[in-house]
Nucleic acid binder design. Sequence first.
RNA 1: AGAGCUGGUCAGGCGGUCGCUGAUUGGCAACGUUAGAUGCUUGCGUCUAUGUUGCUGGUUGGAGGAAAGUCCGGGCUCCAUAGGGCAGGACGCCAGGUAACGCCUGGGAGGUGCGAGCCUACGGAAAGUGCAGCAGAAAGGAAACCGCCUGAAAAACUUCGGUGCUUCAGGUAAGGGUGAAAAGGUGCGGUAAGAGCGCACCGCGCGGCUGGUAACAGGCGUGGCGAUGGUAAACCCCGUCCGGAGCAAGACCAAAUAGGAGCCUAUUGCCGCUGCCCGCGGCGGGCUCGGGUAGGUUGCUAGAGGCAGUCGGCGACGGCUGUCCCAGAUGAAUGAUCGUUCAAGACAGAACCCGGCUUAUCGACCAGCUCUCAUA
Length: 130
Amino acid sequence: MADYALTKSRRLLTPLDYSAVFDGADYKVSDRSVLVLAINNELGYSRLGLVMAKKNIRLAVQRNRIKRQIRESFRTNDIGRGSLDIVVLARRGLDQMENEAVRSLLTTCWDKLLAKASHAAHSQLNAEKV
RNA sequence: AGAGCUGGUCAGGCGGUCGCUGAUUGGCAACGUUAGAUGCUUGCGUCUAUGUUGCUGGUUGGAGGAAAGUCCGGGCUCCAUAGGGCAGGACGCCAGGUAACGCCUGGGAGGUGCGAGCCUACGGAAAGUGCAGCAGAAAGGAAACCGCCUGAAAAACUUCGGUGCUUCAGGUAAGGGUGAAAAGGUGCGGUAAGAGCGCACCGCGCGGCUGGUAACAGGCGUGGCGAUGGUAAACCCCGUCCGGAGCAAGACCAAAUAGGAGCCUAUUGCCGCUGCCCGCGGCGGGCUCGGGUAGGUUGCUAGAGGCAGUCGGCGACGGCUGUCCCAGAUGAAUGAUCGUUCAAGACAGAACCCGGCUUAUCGACCAGCUCUCAUA
């Protein structure tokens, strides 16, 4: 059974954390209404950061709703057991989606991200063998 | 029963599971301070109290009526103790409420609706300047286009009394026409025709009186009204109010790295306090002391506070008594999911805090009142 908690240690807290992800994003997963960036960390667990630009999602109520959905999805998914620093950026139109749609979109994003990360780990392993 | 007006209240409920955040209270671990007790190898242990951090359990609090727009008014903080003048801005019937207001309450005036009600940027146009398209003869100490009336000349006609085309000189603001507006209105008298020329009523100006704190209302007298047209969300005048910046205010602890703090002294220059002037503060020099960006802590929620009762007031509101504690985040919490139920859930998310205004909004309910219809 996975640990479903989401405490402060599992979130990105400072501007330094964020700029590290923006400057050297190892993995990218893109969709029409959302962009996910991530880098490896050495902590043994994943951390989440959110960027909800007021320009893209105008109403505060909608921004809160989307953030809650993303956090809930991150919390209940296996992605939390990886070792990644992840930043999710909202794009225009995300506030038009229903909760269920947002959740399924994010699940596919997490799957893609995990696949890329494990693939990268494998190729690094192979490179080391050669 | 239907249609409507005013004021107010609520903003899905219940249960299970998994989360976030504040407070509080246990347990465990690490580190530290001081105090007490105690062991002896007399400078090190042990225990208890206590502080910080981490993990973990219990209890409990956790968005709004608009949290919004940031349009006003305050508190609070720093700048000088918030000062003087000019400039600038806001407001503008009267009285009251308030910390204050551009808000609210009550009253007056005008407009509007059958009515309950609703609406009003509602000071001054005899201080000055400006503005008014088109139409119209004339638009502000106005004006004669048509018309009406009088007089003179006079074609033509004539029953020889006159009727008078046309022209000229005058009178006339009653009628037509233009316009948003034509200089008091309506009626009667009057007149050559007319005219406040005279009279009545209404309106307006001026002066007393009565009621009212006042705005104002009523009534009396008086002026014939060629006094004083409109426009001040045109400039303006008058009155009242307004210093600036904002919680990223400000205070404290503090990595890297050389930009500081206190005291004394000086007032040429520069910077800041307001756009400008006065005025004030800082930078400058000397002496003494080491410092304050990232980050953290604080400010940060007990308040012009809510609720109930009571007293004063028409009311806004105020006094007194009792009672309650009701978000405090900071990459930013207040949620997710399942079940159930109903009248089927709108607009929408705190960011220093209050009082207002404005805008958005599915609906539900309560109180008072108005109009219409029916029954009796």
